[in-house]
């Protein structure tokens, strides 16, 4: 435990930005979007994620600075995953953290932890769900997520991933719904002002640890996720399709890293 207390707080670490922005969204949701103030559930998620991270780190790297990543994953779970059961919240947090340590290839974890945790919990427990409509479509929120998202992405150098994903997805949705089907433009704008989609674009798909290392590979990868999300949305009527598309596309990262060789990302 001593080493936990001795972490030098490095404020240049972009994860601090992520933690503060995600916390802000949680507070915004509770106070402005009428989310249920289920503090116990949030505490259960945080507690389980941190304990799981400490335990896993103790048996592996012993680098406790990774607790910041656990906080980010816990915040993502609080923001996206809904459940009425505390046991499910614990399962989600433990799967999320454990996936980082257990599902690895070439010294890199394969899945975005929160993304994997969310999908696995939904499929395994059957009593958790995604609530894509919960963010509403406020332009103010769109603006805030956009600005804070860019602030983090500048520091981690993953703007290419976000831009490639969102522009491909928008182009496909625009062609399908506005040009082909004939819906007015605000049909698509409504979809792209959804808090869930923006949070995914700026804070989930861009996780530097699970995106391909090379910029070219990341763009190919993002376009692939956008294509998959588009098919899932329009042909299989899956809500929050990008979240499902990411978990399906994650294993391709390893393949892309083999083709496009580039230096691996490090937080500090």
């Amino acid at each position: 435990m001593r080493s936990v207390l001795q972490i030098p707080i490095n404020f240049r670490d972009p994860r601090w930005f992520q933690i503060s922005f995600l916390s802000f969204f949680l507070i915004y949701g509770i106070f402005f979007l009428d989310w249920e103030m289920d503090i116990t559930r949030y505490l259960v998620i945080f507690g389980s994620a941190i304990i799981a991270q400490i335990v896993c780190t103790y048996f592996t790297t012993k680098d406790y600075s990774s607790i910041k990543s656990a906080l980010i994953s816990a915040l993502s779970l609080c923001l996206l995953l809904k459940t009425n059961l505390y046991a499910t919240a614990v399962i989600a947090a433990v799967i999320t953290i454990a996936s980082k340590f257990l599902i690895r290839y070439n010294n890199k974890h394969i899945f975005n932890p929160a993304n994997f945790g969310i999908i696995a919990t939904i499929l395994l427990t059957g009593d958790a769900w995604l609530s894509p409509g919960q963010w509403g479509n406020s332009m103010l929120l769109l603006f805030i997520i956009g600005i804070t998202g860019f602030a983090v992405l500048f520091r981690v150098g993953r703007i290419d991933t976000s831009i490639a994903f969102i522009s491909t997805f928008f182009a496909l949705e625009f062609m399908q719904n506005v040009i082909y089907k004939g819906w007015p433009l605000d049909y698509v704008l409504h979809e792209f002002s959804s808090g869930t989609l923006l949070l995914f674009t700026f804070f989930m798909i861009t996780d530097p640890k699970t995106t391909p290392n090379s910029s070219k590979a990341r763009i190919i990868w993002s376009v692939m996720i956008a294509l998959l999300a588009f098919f899932l949305t329009n042909w299989f009527y899956v809500h929050a399709a990008p979240v499902w598309a990411l978990v399906i596309s994650a294993p391709v990262t390893a393949l892309l890293d083999k083709v496009f060789i580039h230096q691996k990302f490090s937080w500090t």
């Binding site: 809904k82 009425n84 009593d127 958790a128 769900w129 605000d186 704008l189 409504h190 009527y237 809500h239």
Partner: peptide, 16 residues
Amino acid sequence: SNFPQDLFFTETPSRE
């Protein structure tokens, strides 16, 4: 102006 899309529903497992 405020409802540009049809209503799409999702069934949750919540029995609250």
